[in-house]
Design a protein around this nucleic acid. Sequence first.
DNA 1: CAGGTTCTTGCGTTTTTTTGCGGGAATTAT
DNA 2: ATAATTCCCGCAAAAAAACGCAAGAACCTG
Lengths: 249, 249
Amino acid sequence: MLKRERQAFILHRLNLHNKVLSVDLCKEIGVSEDTIRRDLQELSDAGRLIKVHGGALSMAFSEVKFAPLNVYSRAHKAIIAKKALRLIEDGMFVLTSGGTTILELVRNLPMNLRATIMTGSVPVINACIAYPKIDVVVVGDKLSKDSKLTVGVDAVEQISRVNAGLCFLGTNALDMEHGLTDNDREVVQVKKAMVNASAKVVCMTIAEKLQTYQPMQVCGLKKINYLVTELDPNDRILRPFIDAGITVI
Amino acid sequence: MLKRERQAFILHRLNLHNKVLSVDLCKEIGVSEDTIRRDLQELSDAGRLIKVHGGALSMAFSEVKFAPLNVYSRAHKAIIAKKALRLIEDGMFVLTSGGTTILELVRNLPMNLRATIMTGSVPVINACIAYPKIDVVVVGDKLSKDSKLTVGVDAVEQISRVNAGLCFLGTNALDMEHGLTDNDREVVQVKKAMVNASAKVVCMTIAEKLQTYQPMQVCGLKKINYLVTELDPNDRILRPFIDAGITVI
DNA sequence: CAGGTTCTTGCGTTTTTTTGCGGGAATTAT
DNA sequence: ATAATTCCCGCAAAAAAACGCAAGAACCTG
């Protein structure tokens, strides 16, 4: 096998699997590891792949998985935010949890919107301060450093005293069997209270989190009124949720 | 699984759920905890996540945007903050109001200090999040856009339920005749509640605000235990306060 | 075609990377 | 306070990479 052939083979393999191991390659092609290593080095120098200890990764892999974190799924979340905005009417009383999706929603609020937002999420509070016509009601109690959200019995109690028109929930995991689930006990308590205190519940999530689940349940699917994802509402992935009676946007 | 793959997996997981536990990761991936820990360390060094005891947190919404640094008399306020720090003991429960002087105090807290800080000031909450060993208790209620402080009967009620060891008050005006005074009705209510809920009250202020007064009284001089200014405690301006029984630092 | 040059490849050795493990320190939970 | 985790450090083994070298193939050139 010629050098060129070999390198083409490697690239082809890389497009299929996004990764190759030097060990596998040298067995399959029947050359020494040094040769493979030199091939990988050359291809790496030419910018066709990313050499790592033990083999190589495709450029696609690195772009997708190692994209700058602060823009991870940001575009998706902006789409979700814009769609969810339609649900907010002037003068509404809105409850929100935390999370980057919710934060994106708040950052996309129209400047002239008049509403009351009740939340225990510190980033959301920070974002809300910028809006002159929005009344912010802070949920007080112990601040969870992980989620940057106030949690605890006091928080639950304060939430249970209100009657919100709408509740936006950042979603950690959502599937048909377990409903809306999360991994932090205290956060689950707060979210539960929010669901019970609201006329309508809106779940906002990137599609990637659909059909996954976490250890603790916030609520069953029946309590969820709207599901907002970045996908087209007709996407087949969303079909089961529509069938379950959820309005998918 | 290659090292890079593993790290990509961790980052991906982190972006989905905002938090990962080393224990979970090493089970799922099938490597030792040390390996996971080293991965987390490397990713942390690269600034791609925040390592914490037991796992890691997503970088997504820990964008620490520092409030304006061009605060009036910042140097003076830093001196005041350093002096006031001496009053805080390990394990204390501390109440604080808002204001740039208080904020300066929080920013000068020692990293290893263990304490509980209860406050309704959004900037103070933001600053406190950075300290891993500080428990933050948020006072909830309506957020006043002017003072970035929660105010209202609920806030007052929550404050009145605690017994704090120390209360730091940002000071708007202080004089012999009217005591501690302020100009915002709702803020005054909150501050009153804080004074009543604390064993010791600390007023922090630049000397410029001494011997001035505002329309509404928070409390009389008798309730104030400590006065912290940028001046030397022996300064003659501070004499009357010492004579009134206040410990001047 | 002879002779020299360049390229490619494999081998042995050295160096680096990665990983797991044990024990003690530190931190957290009970 | 005490117990249980988790973390940190150094070590050692295994795997992989880098390096120099030399044999052979391919390629040019006169």
